[in-house]
Design a protein around this nucleic acid. Sequence first.
DNA 1: AATGAATGAGGTTTCATTCAT
DNA 2: GATGAATGAAACCTCATTCAT
Lengths: 205, 205, 205, 205
Amino acid sequence: MKKVPSSIKDEKLIKMRRDQMIKGAVALFKEKGFHKTTTREIAKASGFSIGTLYEYIRTKEDVLFLVCDFIYEHVKERMEDAIDMNDTNSHSLKGAIQSYFQLMDEMQDEVVVMYQEVKSLSKEAQEYVLKKERDMLNLLEHVIRHSLPEPLSDLDIELIANNIFVQGQMWGFRRWMLHKHFTIESYTERQMHFLFQGLPIPEKA
Amino acid sequence: MKKVPSSIKDEKLIKMRRDQMIKGAVALFKEKGFHKTTTREIAKASGFSIGTLYEYIRTKEDVLFLVCDFIYEHVKERMEDAIDMNDTNSHSLKGAIQSYFQLMDEMQDEVVVMYQEVKSLSKEAQEYVLKKERDMLNLLEHVIRHSLPEPLSDLDIELIANNIFVQGQMWGFRRWMLHKHFTIESYTERQMHFLFQGLPIPEKA
Amino acid sequence: MKKVPSSIKDEKLIKMRRDQMIKGAVALFKEKGFHKTTTREIAKASGFSIGTLYEYIRTKEDVLFLVCDFIYEHVKERMEDAIDMNDTNSHSLKGAIQSYFQLMDEMQDEVVVMYQEVKSLSKEAQEYVLKKERDMLNLLEHVIRHSLPEPLSDLDIELIANNIFVQGQMWGFRRWMLHKHFTIESYTERQMHFLFQGLPIPEKA
Amino acid sequence: MKKVPSSIKDEKLIKMRRDQMIKGAVALFKEKGFHKTTTREIAKASGFSIGTLYEYIRTKEDVLFLVCDFIYEHVKERMEDAIDMNDTNSHSLKGAIQSYFQLMDEMQDEVVVMYQEVKSLSKEAQEYVLKKERDMLNLLEHVIRHSLPEPLSDLDIELIANNIFVQGQMWGFRRWMLHKHFTIESYTERQMHFLFQGLPIPEKA
DNA sequence: AATGAATGAGGTTTCATTCAT
DNA sequence: GATGAATGAAACCTCATTCAT
């Protein structure tokens, strides 16, 4: 759990400075991507000098890790808040999807950044971060499992969870396509419709 | 749409050299990403010298463009072959999905590369490439429109086309998750099942 | 000869802190050399903070000076103790050599450090420190001059003094070679043997 | 034996450029030491750009290695030339010493540089270079062994070889002291005198 | 007197691109 | 047409030093 060492002792300060850093870095990464962003730009956007930046991280990759970790953690927390694990009520799946899609709408930029840049992390860091994605999928799977009248196989549950997860992200990374004709509300409504309804069956298939 | 000038006259040679280049580059980009791959590595993997590489492109970004363009073009062509635009038969949607998923399985590496690196292209190049994505979606939309017994709204058609498109790509870029429990055949079957069937409805929703 | 100013008033404290500093620094310099040792490491090894370090010195080079000066001073003092300037007894040269070699054995690390790093001092500091080397040589020269039955020329005396001086240091800086087959005692004995005896003369030379 | 890889293919060119490099670097190292010399200065002194420098080495330490290796190799070769291994004639030791001291006089700067900076090499490189020192000592030992009328113990031979070796270097690294009153000729003559003659014995010791 | 966070000049190294052969 | 040596801007990172607390 201990990650990204710093030469600064004051933990409060570390948190504060790193928050500044993440904020600045997300903005830059969104605009030009991780690789085209220089450490000096990150320092500047964070409001301190290059020397200070390196008091709080060891390498440029640490910044990316901090950013990814922050986003994943944030999304995960919000999902946990939105989903009542004890509520097996049948509405809960719809509610969960709605909350999740809403969140994806709010965090579009972050999600797109994260989405494109995780591959630049070291294998180790990637695994650490992906663990949180797994957690979120488990959450979704749990809701799916307990919200449906008829039980689904574990495989089907996994598939549906993945579909929902990706459809949430789609709203962000295919915005150039989807935002032309949809609002997040209409998008949510239609996706939900087809999720439950399916397509009109061709023939007797 | 003349793109990527070369100082070489012989068009045949250009095509040949660029094919070598694309093949080498895809392998490298898959492994380490566009930014971490050097032009020298590309030249080496392509089987010629750095000097020769630059006889066939102007900048490193040209390589990326060539790669993306090639992949999109290839996928597009294969989809056009697979889909008979005149066949309004009701089975055609299923057939199209099957062909497309099959293709995505074969071209996993290419698709993942393309998927991660398009954002590194210039806005202009991105638009050029994305145009081909638009074409593919149109293809899917056409099939959807003409395969279903009941007509869907244009918006719904667009949404479904996007869903199918992304679910095909998912098979590649979420392989770490999906390939554990699915083969491309079972994946296709279950996705198709839920596409038409939907989930068991909770309540009377 | 007031050297290395400090912003601290309490002279006792200065001496104490600087002793800590020298001890820590010698260990570090021995291990990684002056240039690869950071001021922060010196502070840490000395048991106080970087801020405090700079209360007792002005620049990093001051630390090196303090170290070199300390070592030279220490060696010089010990040599002065060992050599009774009034004792013109013929044994005194052997005694002096013995004491000096013994000292060089005890202070190997320090001598090696000093030996390698003096050149990193400013010309001015170098001269100051080398002055003490001159003093030690004078000491040796004095003993040589007054211990031999037949008088030697000044030049010869200087040469012999230098030889002895360097042979003492050799024990430290060529330890990888000499310590394999010698102890300080056998080394002293053999060196002394050849110093007085010379080699078996080839021919009638 | 293969050491210090280069991205240049033309071996002739590598040799040429590295010779330029060594020449430039020795001058700089002599003046300011390895650590205070920047790679850009080395490039400039070598007569090419910083980019070119790095085509012929991987790291700054490689330059130091090249320099040390060159010097050791050069000295070794010259010693091998000077010493006829088959000549067991009694004069050979004197001749060898004379040649060696002469060489040390010519290569003063190089020897001093090498002497001070070997410690900055990696352990591995140090061992590689020190191997050559061992070879030179063996050479000296051989001559000593075969030039003396009375046989010496192996230990004594080793000791004498070391003494001669260091006395040669002394002429360079203690020049501030020795060059005041000696020329290389008189230095050689007196050192040789005491080597064979020893000191006038105090008492009957 | 002691601390340690902040600074930024400057060091090492990489790599896209050019051009003479 | 092909080659690969040369270039230098620019990237990442370090660390001696300062100064407010």
